[in-house]
């Protein structure tokens, strides 16, 4: 079994893993960071989105060994420990952008990446288009769209 090393949420981690271990399995099972979810097996739902070297990836479609030497940010590391929530997290709560909460970590991580790529002023059309890789069955996306627009604006000040 190869050893894999990476930095996850600011902490250096090393482990021996079966070569076929997915990044999401490594996060959930080895590190017990269970905030990153698995909602499908075809890279469609986006519940597993994390940031790899600052860029959103689907951790169900990334091998753990591909993250060798990389920096990984999961939902658990988005806000500083004991610090305030990230503005995007706060916006999801304020705008009722979640119901069952299962897709939420992936939605939030995707939204933060969307802001990185598209800026702080996001219109509805852009947000809906950019959410193509994230499925939610509860909200009809209505409040997720509102939350992301508000969160993006709030990130400007943060």
């Amino acid at each position: 079994m190869p050893a894999v090393s990476m930095t996850v949420n600011g902490k250096a981690v090393t482990a021996d893993v079966d070569i076929r271990t997915l990044l999401v399995q490594f996060l959930r099972e080895n590190l017990r960071l269970t905030g990153t979810h698995v909602g499908c097996d075809t890279s469609q739902c986006g519940a597993c989105v994390v940031h790899l070297d600052g860029i959103a990836v689907k951790s169900c479609t990334t091998l753990a060994v591909q993250a060798e030497g990389c920096t990984v940010l999961t939902i658990e590391g988005l806000a500083a420990p004991n610090g305030p929530l990230h503005p995007m997290q706060e916006a999801f709560r304020e705008h009722h952008g979640l119901q069952c909460g299962f897709c939420t970590p992936g939605m939030v991580m995707t939204a933060v990446d969307m802001v990185r790529r598209k800026g702080n002023e996001l219109d509805e059309k852009t947000i809906r288009h950019e959410l193509d890789g994230n499925l939610c069955r509860c909200t009809g996306y209505h409040n997720i769209v509102k939350a992301i627009a508000a969160g993006a604006r709030a990130m400007k000040g943060a």
Binding site: R28, L33, T34, G35, T36, H37, V38, T74, I75, E76, L78, A79, L85, Q89, F92, R93, E94, H96, L98, G101, F102, T104, P105, V108
Partner: peptide
């Protein structure tokens, strides 16, 4: 605003697979 949201937006929810 929902009391349950804090754990869900921070990845602290406890779903069965967790």
């Amino acid at each position: 605003r929902r009391k349950e949201d804090l754990r869900f937006i921070t990845g602290k929810g406890q779903y069965t697979d967790d």
